[in-house]
Design a protein around this nucleic acid. Structure first.
Lengths: 146, 146
DNA sequence: TTCATTGCAAAACGTTTGCATGTAT
DNA sequence: ATACATGCAAACGTTTTGCAATGAA
């Protein structure tokens, strides 16, 4: 079986296992997020999706549903546009963003689990932690000298 | 000298040391952020500011300038509204947010400096780190049982 | 006085809602 | 067949821009 077909089946499985119907917009959107090199905002998503694959409103609804289902992560680069990324549990990572040119690079090593335990002890109101966000902002080697 | 006057002078000093003129909107906004118990979004700010103290556009411009000057932090709770918090360098902290009722509690212990060094080694494109964001999302003791 | 700062009007985005139509299972 | 999903239109909330008027130093 060809690799691309395996991937298509895999994408379809993820959608169905999460309890959703495998529709054209959902398959296209999840496939797109799976190959994206960094978290995409709505404009980038609509630009990369083939015309008439999905309405923008549909994309918003799917992203919301996928986020609740734990299939995608919602990410914010402080640029007034929510970004979404496929949640690959095998390759947990976070991002560093250049504040000047917006270049993005991944990094690993965020040991949030240890801190999560300490935080629950510190915060008397809270019972459980379900998610976390963590990004670094800085300057890339090109922009730092400007 | 009364405490409230000391605070007023302190607020004025912060603004002027950052290179800004100590105008009514800027004094009111920074004072508000200094006493806020959690990061405020624009609606909350406009609601808490006395009427006619500052136009909403002015508030946006001041927040942007204060952020660039390092006086305030920009924070995102994944609720489509940018939040701002007075940056008190003496009391560095982050936030945990209840995904159900939006309650916020602070926590300390984010040792980002150690990770920042490792991240710069990992990411060949980046030269320096200037900022970071870190929030936990979870459920408070009231909402967890629902 | 002078230049930084503000207010107002209007536009530009990002996001959500309601409802009729379409479709995966 | 039918409950789930989508598309379209329109509303909504947040943020930005241009420009003339104002005010702090």
């Amino acid at each position: 079986m060809k690799k691309s077909l395996q991937n298509k089946d895999h994408t379809k499985n993820i959608i169905q296992k999460a309890g959703f119907r495998a529709t054209k917009p959902r398959l296209a959107l999840l496939s797109l997020l799976q190959v994206a090199k960094y978290p995409l905002n709505i404009k980038e998503i609509m630009g990369k999706l083939e015309t008439a694959t999905a309405d923008q409103v549909t994309v918003y609804r799917i992203l919301d549903a996928f986020k609740k289902a734990g299939i995608v992560n919602q990410i914010n680069f402080q640029d007034n546009a929510t970004r979404y990324e496929y949640k690959d549990t095998e390759h947990d990572h976070h991002h560093i963003v250049c504040v000047t040119c917006k270049k993005v690079e991944d990094f690993i090593g965020c040991d949030y689990k240890k801190l999560a335990g300490e935080v629950l002890k510190q915060t008397p109101c809270f019972a459980e932690i379900t998610d976390h966000s963590f990004e670094f902002f800085g300057k890339c080697k090109t922009c730092v000298s400007v």
